[in-house]
Design a protein around this nucleic acid. Structure first.
Length: 719
DNA sequence: AGAACAGAGG
């Protein structure tokens, strides 16, 4: 690089612009600027412009700071330079520069407002963006630019971007003339704030106005339809496009595909997608997302693999697809591939990855992801922290969840809810209720999800009176209308507390149609607390809603078996067989030294199978000495009593536990995850083992965590 | 010289 020799004699009285533009570093720039000032010349607009557009690295913040200081020291910079500077400086410094210029009494003209409002719209949280919009609005009213469409459109944009949609609408409504861009800004404003139905309504208004929608408007509105799953409006807009003869550009085509994808209409989306000669990134991503959402994850993957180049968004869509389709291992694998291909994740990617870890329940993976998050500076993002709380809870590590929670300075309602729900899953309802009180004391309003967590906590801890009280106070104290899931929690609460009849009455009296989950709670309660009559009703209702619901057959036959009604057990089994329903296989996982080992019932495929069965035999012998005897009530198949004992002793969680005991020492902790609910025999087996072998066991089943320590489980029988 | 759009999450 050429070095400038700044000999005073060689500087001509007028600085040639090529000299200025040859400066590429801050010190060179400062030297030249110093010469300019010393030579007594004013910085002419052209020189200032040159200064602001120097080919310095835009990422080099000091150069922008320097440009700013020059701008501020120039008494009356022309407005077009200010505009340029505002754009270059970025939101925060643009706002600061603007405040200084105003303080210095600089006259503003109408060209200043759009860039300023743009900065205010894009400013970060706590940088006074909204205040700038309001001030500017007042200023505009005073200075008589109220009729300028550019200024007003920028104001609408500013208000909308700060979430003040009604202010945006007020400005929009008072605009003397609204062109297509003004409509676009207002429509997008509603969408950005999640008010999609307002957006659609505004679009109807627009259609009856004298301004015709263009591609941009239609893309925005189609996106609104997609996000709300409003297929009928989406189709109407599709027809409108075809009828009005608006040119179908790539943007619009992608928007249409995305709308159909989001509404789950993959047949139509596919047809449109196949018609595109060159599949672009956005359209392909929409297809990947759509197929993943309807569970056709392999089709999604096929399209993903076909994409010639992949960006952050499509990687994230595919990762999220796996994570949401209960394929957490694939999600993590893809996350590694993404990094290997050189694409850096953002916070949205991280949310899916964290969720995958939560699904997997593997604590070592979870810790690894947490380290990754710290290293890559995502740990200050609130949503990431909230997801981490959930992840640690679901991985059975409440202590780490607490650490993340307490280390979060600005907690929002989701932060509190995640922690409350975590405590609930682990059966610590008392702490959940205490945390709820703390949350209210700190002035955070609970939402519907918080109350689900709280009711869930009461239910899983047997806090009947507290649960009833929370449910009663929902409407008048917290202004939350109970939804189906709240009733579900109450049914669960009553069932676990053996109040089966009351639970049934609640189902009958609630203002919603019960779903299979609600009837499932009742059926589960009937099995635990033995009520054949109600159990039959619940099972019947489930099978009316979903004839292939394997859980209903299994639980019902368990109830009959427990009541020694073997004819009925046989009848249920034959019914299952004739309808081609099979029981979901029990499956357990255990993580040893970062590796996940999977066991099915009676599984002999593990390389150390012999050793595992030996250990199991040894455990059983020890347990029998202290009073354990196999309880066969949960065995579905009708076998001889001895065979039933065999079957129950081969449950996957017992195999996983044996393997865990081989690989751990006294006083340590074994973590097991299971796909179904733990059976009664395994539950008491775990309790015995925790005492006899002096070991802590954390078992995650389909609905909650069980912590076994010293012969007792944290669920205290409420499961 | 100045104003708008589609795909990942919530």
């Amino acid at each position: 690089m050429e070095t400038l020799t700044l000999n005073p004699i060689s500087i001509p009285p007028i600085i040639p612009s090529h000299l200025l533009s040859s400066a590429t570093t801050i010190p060179q720039l400062k030297q030249i600027h110093a010469r300019i000032l010393r030579s007594g010349l004013d910085l002419t607009p052209s020189l200032l412009s040159r200064l602001l557009s120097l080919p310095l690295n835009p990422a080099a913040a000091p150069s922008l700071d320097y440009a700013l200081s020059v701008l501020l020291r120039t008494p009356h910079p022309p407005s077009r330079l200010r505009c340029r500077a505002f754009r270059l400086l970025g939101p925060r410094r643009a706002i600061a520069a603007y405040a200084r210029l105003r303080q210095d009494g600089v006259d503003f003209d109408r060209f200043d407002f759009p860039p300023l409002l743009r900065a205010a719209a894009r400013a970060g949280e706590g940088e006074g963006g909204e205040a700038v919009v309001r001030e500017t609005h007042g200023f505009v009213l005073k200075t008589g630019f109220v009729a300028d469409p550019f200024v007003l459109t920028a104001l609408v944009r500013g208000y909308a971007a700060r979430g003040c949609v009604s202010d945006a609408r007020a400005v929009f409504d008072r605009m003397p003339e609204r062109d297509v861009v003004a409509w676009g800004v207002m429509l997008d404003g509603w969408c950005q704030s999640g008010c999609y139905s307002d957006a659609l309504q505004l679009f109807e208004e627009m259609k009856s106005s004298d301004v015709a929608p263009d591609q941009v408007i239609l893309a925005t509105v189609l996106s609104a339809c997609g996000r709300t799953g409003n297929l009928s409006s989406g189709k109407a807009i599709h027809s409108y496009i075809l009828e009005s003869g608006i040119a179908m550009d790539a943007h619009l085509q992608s928007s249409l595909i995305n709308m159909y994808s989001n509404c789950g209409s993959m047949d139509i989306a596919r047809k449109l997608f196949d018609e595109i000669p060159v599949k672009d990134l956005v359209a392909s991503t929409a297809m990947v997302f759509g197929y993943a959402k309807i569970g056709e994850i392999e089709t999604a993957r096929a399209i993903f693999d076909e994409m010639p180049e992949k960006d952050l968004v499509c990687w994230s869509a595919m990762i999220s697809g796996y994570s949401e389709s209960d394929k957490p291992g694939e999600a993590l694998k893809l996350f590694n591939e993404m990094q290997a291909s050189g694409v850096r994740p953002d916070k949205i990617t991280m949310l899916s990855v964290i969720s995958a870890c939560a699904h997997l329940g593997a604590i070592d993976q979870a810790k690894w992801i947490h380290v990754f998050i710290d290293k890559n500076m995502f740990h200050d993002v609130l949503m990431v922290r909230n997801a981490l709380i959930d992840m640690y809870s679901k991985c059975g590590n409440l202590a780490s969840a607490w650490r993340v929670f307490e280390g979060t300075p600005q907690k929002n309602v989701i932060t509190w809810t995640s922690m409350i729900t975590g405590l609930a899953m682990h059966g610590d309802g008392t702490s959940a209720l205490a945390l709820f009180e703390r949350m209210k004391a700190e002035g955070v309003e609970p939402n519907g999800v918080t109350l689900v967590g709280l009711l869930y906590a009461c239910s899983h801890t047997g806090l009947v009176a507290e649960g009833r009280q929370v449910f009663e106070s929902m409407v008048h104290e917290y202004k939350v209308e109970p939804k189906l899931e709240h009733y579900g929690c109450m049914v669960d609460l009553l069932c676990r507390a053996k109040l089966l009849r009351e639970a049934f009455e609640l189902i009958e009296s609630m203002p919603f149609h019960p779903n299979v989950i609600i009837w499932g709670s009742l059926l589960g309660g009937c099995r635990v607390h033995m009520d054949v009559e109600l159990g039959e009703i619940a099972a019947k209702r489930i099978l009316e809603l979903d004839p292939d619901h394997d859980g209903a057959y299994v639980l019902l036959s368990n109830i009959y078996a427990k009541a020694n009604k073997w004819d009925e057990v046989g009848r249920v089994r034959r019914l299952m067989k004739s309808r081609g329903v099979s029981k979901e296989k029990g499956c357990s996982w255990i993580e040893i030294n970062g590796n996940v080992h999977e066991f099915l019932m009676g599984d002999e495929s593990h390389p150390k199978s012999k050793e595992i069965y030996g250990k199991l035999e040894e455990i059983i012998q020890e347990l029998v000495l202290v009073g354990y005897s196999p309880d066969t009530g949960s065995v579905l198949v009708d076998l001889e009593e001895e065979e039933k004992k065999e079957a129950v002793l081969l449950h996957s969680e017992k195999l996983a536990l044996s393997f865990g005991l081989i690989n751990s020492t006294r006083g340590s902790c074994i973590r097991i995850a299971k796909n179904l609910r733990v059976c009664e025999d395994c539950h008491s087996f775990m309790e015995f083992v925790s005492k006899v072998f002096d070991i802590e066991i954390v078992l995650r089943d389909r609905t909650r965590f069980h912590h076994y320590k010293n012969g007792v489980c944290s669920c205290k029988g409420f499961w």
